[in-house]
Computed example of a mutant assay.
Amino acid sequence: MSATAKKTAPLPADILARKGGLPLVCLTAYTTPVARLTDPHCDIVLVGDSLGMVLHGMESTLGVTMEMMILHGAAVKRGLSRAMMVVDMPFGSYEESPSQALRNAARILRETGAAAVKLEGGVEMEETIRFLTRRSIPVMAHIGLTPQAINTLGGYKVQGRGEDRARVLDDARAVARAGAFSVVLEKVPATLADEITAELPIPTIGIGASAGCDGQILVVDDMLGLFTAFKPKFAKRYAELGETADAAIAAYAAEVRARSFPAPEHVFGEEAQGAKP
């Protein structure tokens, strides 16, 4: 089947069945137009809480709210027909208790049409993930660098080096044991990502991890060159749309100031009654 062939959107069980198979293609999206662009090519489209930084100019993801995630999630859903949508649970929406997590996860699924939620954390979230999955809430886990915990992790640092390797391994085992159908490995050494991928029965999705993971994810604005505040090492630029947009806006501004836009073909003249507008 070609990358653009029509197919129905996969479910979490279908993603789980892809373990060890053809790598999963995942990107973020936050709007309907971008969702439509990603849909023909991706297995999973994530409405990430990175939208706080990418779209709203926040310094981190900590200020993102449930309302923001639901608003953008509903917008992305309108642009999807073949990719599975997953929505991030924002900071503060699931850490208090499993019951809090269930209430907010159910709201996200109900109001966005998402197939699953994603939450950050390993061993400390095992009980919560198990509580959700046993109540029909599919969960994508996220370990390694967890952006919602940057204040305790000391910033956006690689996780799992040296003695910290055992902690990340324990986190991976915990989320798989709890019933997550997949796990994002962010900013961990490639050898550790390969070890986790070989051991876990669920797909691993790398971002700054290893080509040996069961899939890969990037922030779409990073890979298109639209987000330029900073560039993570792992964010390969497949285009430089930010530069293209800057040049286009500069050309528009110059033509307006020179009164060369609008040109005659862009304005309306006197026309006979009944003529098409």
Rank of each mutant, 00 (worst) to 15 (best):
G208M: 01
L37C: 10
M68V: 00
A235W: 12
R103L: 13
Q216D: 02
A74L: 06
A141M: 11
M140Y: 06
E270I: 13
M85F: 05
L16K: 14
V220L: 15
A239N: 08
A35Q: 07
G155Q: 02
I207Y: 12
S260C: 05
A239G: 11
G57E: 02
R78N: 11
T128V: 13
P10E: 03
T65N: 00
V47L: 12
G274S: 12
V123C: 10
A13V: 10
G57W: 04
G113N: 09
M69E: 01
S99Y: 14
D221R: 09
R167K: 15
E111S: 09
S97L: 06
Q273C: 05
A180M: 03
V64H: 09
P203V: 04
M53D: 10
D43V: 12
A247V: 12
T8N: 12
L51R: 07
I202M: 09
I205M: 09
M140A: 14
A75M: 11
R257D: 15
L37G: 02
A258L: 08
L16S: 12
I207T: 08
M58N: 07
M85A: 00
D170K: 10
G215K: 09
M66V: 05
S97C: 03
M223E: 14
E124L: 14
G48M: 01
E195T: 07
G215C: 13
K118I: 03
E120H: 06
L80D: 08
T61N: 04
E186F: 08
R259P: 00
I143T: 02
V54I: 13
T152D: 05
S50R: 01
K19D: 07
T38A: 15
V219Y: 05
F91D: 04
R78E: 13
C213W: 08
N151H: 15
A193V: 06
E111N: 08
G162V: 02
R259M: 03
G122I: 11
L102Y: 13
S210Q: 06
R36H: 14
M125T: 09
L192A: 11
A254N: 12
Y156C: 01
A115Q: 14
A74T: 10
D194T: 03
R161H: 10
I137H: 04
V123S: 06
F131G: 04
K157T: 05
E243W: 08
M68N: 08
Q216T: 01
T28K: 05
V175H: 07
F181R: 05
G206E: 04
S210A: 09
F131H: 14
T31F: 06
I70Y: 13
M84T: 05
P40G: 04
